[in-house]
């Protein structure tokens, strides 16, 4: 098979069969990419996954691009990325079209009113999980509190917070390193 098509199809399968985003993708990646195709070793996949989390963008997409570009260069990376998003495009478009047409039906409205309560619980749950890796010391906690207060009270673009907190991260770590050195 054409290697690009192969990448596209394999990553479509991975994207289409994993529920719950990036974290749920790992076992599937190991089976398809390491065992079946041998495009990368399990250790490499773990590396990609770890680096993928530290880069902007989505973990699943970043990991797919790593594997694709390792196998077939930049075009391979693009084929893998398109593959991993393809099922979402199809499935979500169908559901969104359906909801557009049936949003006025009582039963759909009731169902979504229930689902919204669930989404709230899922978001709180996700924040508590993310907190563990993010709020590692006192400066990080203070930074989080400051950003939350500003974001809740003002109307500034999130991009600005990301840039400022990146600079704050560098500043805090520099101070910590200096203290340690002296």
């Amino acid at each position: 098979m054409n290697p690009y098509l192969d990448l596209f199809i394999t990553f479509s399968k991975i994207g289409g069969l994993t529920f719950g985003g990036g974290y749920a993708m790992l076992p599937m990646l190991q089976r398809e990419v390491a065992e079946n195709r041998q495009w990368a070793t399990e250790a490499e996949i773990m590396d990609y996954y770890a680096i993928g989390q530290c880069l902007p963008g989505l973990i699943a997409v970043n990991t797919a691009i790593f594997v694709g570009s390792k196998t077939k260069g930049a075009p391979g990376g693009i084929a893998a990325a398109l593959g991993v998003v393809f099922p979402s495009l199809v499935i979500i478009t169908i559901i969104a079209a359906f909801l557009n047409n049936f949003a006025d039906i009582r039963i759909v409205q009731n169902a979504f009113a229930g689902i919204r309560a669930c989404v709230l619980a899922l978001i709180v749950n996700a924040i508590l999980k993310l907190r563990k890796g993010a709020l590692v010391d006192l400066p990080a906690i203070l930074l989080c509190a400051a950003v939350f207060a500003l974001a809740a009270l003002t109307d500034i673009s999130p991009i600005l917070y990301v840039i400022c907190s990146a600079l704050a991260g560098i500043a805090i770590q520099t101070v910590i390193a200096r203290r340690r050195a002296s």
Binding site: C54, L130, A140, L143, Y161, V162, G169
Partner: peptide, 13 residues
Amino acid sequence: AIFYGIRPASVAL
């Protein structure tokens, strides 16, 4: 260091 700063901000956002 950059990600040390961005992660707490991301949680806050």
